[in-house]
Simulated assay, not measured.
Amino acid sequence: MQSIDSHRPLILVVDDAPDSIEPIVDCLHRADFRTRIATSGSRALQLAGDKPLPDLILLDVTMPDMDGYEVCRQLMNNPATASIPVIFLTIRNEETDEQRGFDAGAVDYITKPISPPLVLTRIRNHLTLKTASDFLRDRNSYLEHEVTRRTRELSLIQDATIVAMASLAETRDNETGNHIRRTQSYLRALARHLQTHPRYAAELTDENIDLMYKSAPLHDIGKVGIPDRILLKPGRLTPTEFEVMKTHTTLGRDAINRAEALFGVSASFLRFAKEIAYSHQEKWDGSGYPLGLAGERIPLSARLMAVADVYDALISKRVYKPAISHADAVEIMREGSGKHFDPAIIDAFLVLQGEFLAIAQRFADRDTDPASEAERLRLVFGG
């Protein structure tokens, strides 16, 4: 339990002249203040940092080892003591001396000989201001902590929402969970590489890349609405079946719109998920679906997803096709530049192709080999 004495304000008195210290300390004690005494600048710096910290410091200017201005500057430069108000008590009464005191960080400047009522009033005023300042600082610290906590909580809710929706899609799709991990990792690698690209830098902020990465698993969420006879068909789709399959883009966007409606918002963290789900099958030359968008009319997040998704589809075994080698997939992607894909994104892909292969190997499906046989043997035997 705190003692009653600990609630009395503690004043550090700094002066090298005993005949100056005695009347000040006597005045403070009669006003029910506690005191500490330092007779040099170096001792003042030491006592100012001792717990409990002083509530206020009365500081003389003229001292032999270190003048009061330097003591005050050092106190203000130390985070532990910077918030302690300093009042100069000095015989130096020139206007320039007073200005030097305020420039050093003092809150007040009183010339000697002192008037005890005046000094006590000034001390009480500055202690009141310090109490208010401490309250505001503590409150701001609490609010910052609360904002950080709630932001982290919101981020976890966002992650959980996306994971839940992506898991729902996985239960219907003939692709694997590792496909989701690979494609979101490809997308993030491309986006980070393009952060310095003059056309994309403004959109590819760290925050947006993080949201795109989280949203990537929802690119095929619309497949939950495709009938099993089409979604799980082992052979090629008929033209009619393919038209049904193409609706997964619209179904995906609509599913995310409904999720946003449940949140009661129209522009949420799912904005990139909507873009990716609806537009990742569009092609740079306008021959894609569902809208036949071309060039930069296709959202950037969807253009990134198109490269990630097609590369992974090429190197992965499916019930309706075998996997091809990484090298062959790279050539197909290169040929698609300016037709299927944004040329700038393909340029980034070609620079990052080694990283893509590493991601594919890290998240490889059990029966899918992302590298050619020669590449696989090289990796196994370290050649």
Results as ranks from 00 to 15, higher is better:
residue 357 L to N: 03
residue 151 T to A: 08
residue 198 P to D: 04
residue 140 N to F: 07
residue 67 D to K: 04
residue 85 P to Q: 03
residue 293 L to A: 12
residue 184 Q to A: 07
residue 115 S to H: 13
residue 53 L to H: 04
residue 303 R to N: 00
residue 317 K to G: 14
residue 211 L to G: 09
residue 290 P to D: 08
residue 287 S to N: 10
residue 46 Q to V: 15
residue 72 C to H: 03
residue 55 D to V: 09
residue 27 C to Y: 00
residue 155 S to E: 11
residue 2 Q to C: 07
residue 357 L to Q: 04
residue 248 H to D: 06
residue 294 A to L: 07
residue 122 R to K: 13
residue 130 K to N: 11
residue 77 N to S: 09
residue 89 L to Q: 15
residue 84 I to D: 02
residue 1 M to D: 02
residue 67 D to S: 05
residue 157 I to P: 03
residue 360 A to C: 10
residue 182 R to T: 13
residue 287 S to T: 02
residue 155 S to C: 04
residue 331 E to V: 15
residue 98 E to R: 14
residue 31 A to V: 12
residue 246 K to E: 12
residue 92 R to I: 07
residue 3 S to F: 08
residue 178 N to Y: 04
residue 276 I to C: 06
residue 265 V to D: 04
residue 304 L to P: 10
residue 50 D to F: 10
residue 379 L to W: 08
residue 46 Q to L: 15
residue 325 S to M: 09
residue 206 D to V: 05
residue 205 T to P: 00
residue 33 F to Q: 00
residue 227 P to V: 07
residue 274 K to A: 07
residue 281 Q to P: 02
residue 363 F to A: 14
residue 326 H to Y: 09
residue 315 I to Q: 08
residue 288 G to F: 01
residue 131 T to H: 14
residue 346 I to V: 12
residue 126 H to F: 14
residue 13 V to R: 00
residue 83 S to E: 06
residue 22 E to K: 11
residue 214 K to M: 14
residue 146 E to M: 12
residue 376 R to I: 15
residue 326 H to I: 11
residue 198 P to W: 07
residue 287 S to F: 15
residue 22 E to N: 10
residue 321 K to A: 13
residue 80 A to L: 15
residue 64 P to I: 02
residue 22 E to A: 11
residue 111 T to M: 14
residue 326 H to M: 14
residue 374 A to F: 05
residue 283 K to G: 12
residue 91 I to L: 07
residue 91 I to R: 05
residue 350 L to G: 04
residue 379 L to C: 07
residue 290 P to C: 03
residue 94 E to D: 09
residue 289 Y to S: 09
residue 107 V to P: 02
residue 251 L to R: 09
residue 243 E to P: 15
residue 204 L to Q: 00
residue 326 H to K: 04
residue 304 L to S: 00
residue 185 S to Y: 14
residue 79 P to M: 06
residue 5 D to K: 15
residue 102 F to R: 05
residue 65 D to W: 10
residue 183 T to N: 14
residue 347 D to P: 08
residue 140 N to Q: 05
residue 381 F to E: 01
residue 223 K to G: 05
residue 211 L to K: 06
residue 250 T to H: 15
residue 219 H to F: 15
residue 170 E to P: 05
residue 175 E to A: 08
residue 336 G to E: 03
residue 190 L to I: 08
residue 10 L to T: 04
residue 123 I to W: 04
residue 161 T to D: 05
residue 130 K to S: 12
residue 89 L to A: 13
residue 236 R to P: 06
residue 150 R to T: 14
residue 196 T to E: 05
residue 273 A to W: 02
residue 123 I to N: 06
residue 295 G to P: 11
residue 198 P to I: 04
residue 11 I to C: 04
residue 12 L to I: 05
residue 63 M to P: 13
residue 228 D to V: 10
residue 120 L to H: 11
